[in-house]
Simulated scan of single mutants.
Amino acid sequence: MTTSTTGQRGRGSDGSRVHVSNFDADTLSVIDTATARATDTVAVGDGPTGVAAARGRRP
């Protein structure tokens, strides 16, 4: 198992997911709150330190 320093956390609008920035890994983890397991990991660039979310907006 690999660990990294985490930054801020952001909760999805329905509470089913938490988004966590992983500073050392340069990624964002998507955590399923029901299982407490990562469902996705997204490369985001150098040293992410926070998470921002907007309701009703998708890329």
Rank of each mutant, 00 (worst) to 15 (best):
T35W: 05
A34M: 06
H19P: 00
A38W: 11
T33G: 08
S16E: 08
T3H: 00
N22D: 06
D14T: 12
G50C: 01
D26W: 12
P59K: 06
T27Y: 14
I31G: 02
T5P: 03
A52F: 00
G10P: 06
G10E: 09
D40P: 03
A34C: 03
V18F: 07
Q8K: 12
A52V: 12
A53W: 05
T27E: 15
N22E: 10
G7V: 07
M1N: 03
V51E: 04
N22P: 03
T6S: 07
D26Q: 14
G56N: 08
D32Y: 11
T49H: 02
N22V: 00
G56C: 05
S13T: 05
T35Y: 10
T6H: 05
P59C: 02
F23V: 01
H19I: 04
S13F: 14
L28A: 11
M1P: 00
S16C: 10
A54Q: 11
R9N: 11
A54Y: 01
S13E: 15
V44L: 06
S21P: 04
S16Q: 12
A34R: 14
T5N: 11
G47S: 07
S4W: 01
S29Y: 12
G45Q: 04
G10I: 04
G15T: 08
G15Y: 13
G56R: 05
R17D: 09
R9S: 05
T33D: 09
R11T: 09
R58A: 10
G7L: 01
P59V: 13
D46H: 09
R37C: 07
D40T: 10
V30M: 14
P48G: 01
G56I: 12
V18P: 00
T6Y: 03
Q8T: 04
V44E: 02
S4C: 04
I31F: 14
T39S: 08
R17P: 05
I31T: 11
D26P: 05
D26K: 08
G45S: 04
T35F: 04
D46E: 07
V30Y: 15
T41K: 15
T41L: 12
A52N: 02
A25F: 14
A36I: 10
M1Y: 08
F23L: 03
S4F: 04
R55A: 13
R17C: 05
V51N: 04
T33C: 12
G12C: 08
P48R: 03
A38S: 14
G47V: 00
T2Y: 11
G56S: 11
D40S: 13
T27M: 15
G10F: 14
V44S: 04
G50F: 01
R58V: 12
V30N: 02
V18K: 00
P48A: 01
V30Q: 06
A43C: 02
T41A: 13
T33S: 09
G12Y: 15
V18C: 01
R11G: 02
N22L: 10
T6P: 02
D14S: 15
D24G: 10
T41E: 14
V42E: 13
G50H: 00
R11L: 14
T27V: 10
H19Y: 15
A53M: 13
A52P: 05
V20F: 11
V20Y: 11
D40W: 07
